[in-house]
């Protein structure tokens, strides 16, 4: 209960106009801080929904695959330059961002992750790593402005954000691959 409440607080904080305006003013903060934090808010709130609607999650997400699919769809959707642009121009789309990231992506991630086997988990992380490398490449070397609302320079910064994040994930995968926790625990 407690963590759901903190998740709600975090969500309210992120949606508050001054905070939202500030975070959306810098492209990389928009995509790499605001959006993940919305997902985290959703993950925290997930406890509440899992308890409240446990039957629902059991029926529809028994093996985690539907949930994780929903998560991927939502995440990929928000990584398109076009959708970011629209979130800044249309209130309706911005509203959808504030709803979809926590409540569709965040909750389903929390509910699904534990249900996946390690092959599933690793494939998800690997696909996101590849996706991030690709997007990093796109944003850094794209010759044109991809977003109406952000300058090319901001785009390049975002590209480096993607590349460094994917380096973080590669380190994690390497750690998982080379180090066998059962040798230590």
């Amino acid at each position: 209960m407690n963590q759901s409440f903190y998740g709600l607080l975090l969500w309210i904080f992120l949606v508050a106009p001054p905070v939202a305006n500030f975070m959306e003013s810098v492209m990389v903060i928009h995509m790499h801080m605001q959006m993940p934090m919305l997902v985290i808010a959703g993950m925290l709130m997930a406890r509440f929904f899992q308890k409240r609607f446990s039957g629902f999650f059991e029926i529809w997400n028994s093996n985690g695959v539907p949930g994780i699919t929903l998560f991927i769809v939502i995440m990929v959707y928000w990584m398109l330059p076009r959708t970011m642009d629209e979130a800044l121009t249309s209130h309706l789309v911005e509203g959808f961002k504030f709803i979809s990231l926590p409540f569709l992506a965040g909750i389903s991630l929390r509910d699904s992750w534990k249900k996946l086997n390690s092959f599933g988990k690793n494939s998800i992380i690997i696909s996101f790593t590849v996706l991030f490398l690709g997007l990093g490449w796109l944003y850094i070397w794209s010759p044109v402005q991809l977003c109406n609302n952000y300058l090319v320079f901001q785009q390049v910064t975002l590209g480096w954000g993607f590349l460094t994040t994917s380096i973080g994930m590669v380190v994690y995968l390497g750690y998982n691959f080379f180090i066998d926790p059962s040798a230590y625990e």
């Binding site: 460094t164 994040t165 973080g168 380190v171």
Partner: peptide
Amino acid sequence: IVVMLIVVAMAYVIPLTE
């Protein structure tokens, strides 16, 4: 360490790119 690397990226990507 991964969390640390991500925090470092958050702080350094913007100014270093600039």
